[in-house]
């Protein structure tokens, strides 16, 4: 097991190398002037340009920049964000928990919701019910999260006034203990709902297909012949066997979300990695962009590893092969 994890961790090294070189090349090719971004929409005085370019070595040759960065990364230094005036790693460590919170709670909603709908649609004997769920999940899944988010804001925040429109918490708060938690939950509600519903529909569609595939298997017919009830068959055989494709897809989606749910964080001004990435691209804060992308890549690698481990836990056959 440990050898397996160690081997997978080693796979991440060449991946990160490729990510760094690719990102450096792409950012080098994209036109942009970070000093102009600092000054705004007025001409940059030559003295200021010189001071900033010298301080952050913005004019170093491409290969010098890449090699310096690689050496620094090997030492655990992911560079300095000149648009935030802070170490890249510090900012990632500060913003990542916010994104992880949003993604985790959203998936905690999406997975049971999607599984319930998927099982209901996949096991129903009524063609009408199946069609209803298939159509509903397709339509809702087709709604982009940023638009769904706007609709939720319009209804729950602007129309009903129940929830805040944006942000991660109130700007001024004296709440403590349970009141503090409730306050946080109010801010979490709409982004989680938007993300959770969207991902839930994806889960539902995968789950339905998987359930239909599972219930046509011979062992389900055997279970029926043994006299197990419908509920018992679903719980003991269908759910577990249908979950394997779901684990793969949801694991990948969760890993991507950890890298920053860009649209969602933008719609709700959720100051996580997604919003940081958008800002950093806009301001040509290349060190910050590369840092967030590396974190994203690592998140996907880590989630793939977890998916593999979950596979083994869910399917004894895989355990045996390993």
């Amino acid at each position: 097991m440990l050898r397996f994890v160690g081997r997978r961790a080693l796979y991440a090294v060449p991946l990160i190398l490729v990510v760094i070189i690719l990102m450096f090349s792409m950012l080098h090719l994209i036109p942009g002037d970070p000093v102009q971004a600092l000054v705004g929409d007025y001409p940059v005085p030559p003295a200021y340009r010189q001071a900033i370019e010298e301080k952050y070595r913005l004019n170093d040759p491409f290969l010098v920049q890449v090699s310096n960065y690689l050496i620094n990364v090997a030492k655990g230094d992911f560079g300095f964000s000149y648009q935030n005036q802070r170490a890249v790693l510090d900012l990632i460590l500060e913003r990542a928990p916010r994104t992880i919170l949003l993604a985790s709670v959203s998936f905690a909603l999406a997975i049971p919701l999607g599984m319930a709908i998927g099982v209901a649609a996949g096991t129903t004997r009524s063609a009408g019910t199946d069609k209803f769920w298939t159509t509903t999940t397709l339509i809702v899944y087709a709604v982009p999260t940023f638009w769904l988010g706007q609709l939720l804001v319009m209804f729950f925040a602007l129309h009903l006034g129940w929830l805040p429109t944006q942000g991660i918490g109130p700007m001024v708060s004296r709440a403590q203990g349970f009141a503090w938690l409730l306050e946080k939950l109010r801010y979490l509600a709409l982004p989680v709902l938007a993300f959770g519903i969207h991902e839930g529909m994806r889960v539902a569609r995968i789950m339905r297909a998987s359930v239909i595939d599972t219930i046509s298997q011979g062992y389900i017919i055997t279970a029926r012949a043994k006299g197990l009830t419908r509920g018992q068959i679903i719980r003991r055989h269908v759910l577990r066997n249908s979950s394997l494709p779901l684990v793969t897809i949801a694991g990948y989606a969760f890993g991507s979300a950890l890298g920053g749910a860009v649209f969602l964080e933008t719609v709700f001004t959720w100051p996580g990695l997604g919003l940081l990435l958008v800002d950093s691209i806009r301001l040509r804060d290349n060190m910050m962009v590369i840092g967030v992308v590396i974190f994203s890549a690592l998140a996907v690698v880590a989630m793939n590893l977890i998916v593999d481990l979950l596979y083994a836990a869910l399917d004894p056959r895989i355990r045996t092969v390993r």
Binding site: L158, G161, P164, T165, Q166, P170, V267
Partner: peptide, 10 residues
């Protein structure tokens, strides 16, 4: 979002 936040009293 700035307008929404103002209308909603945030």
């Amino acid at each position: 979002q700035r307008l929404n936040a103002l209308i909603n009293g945030e």
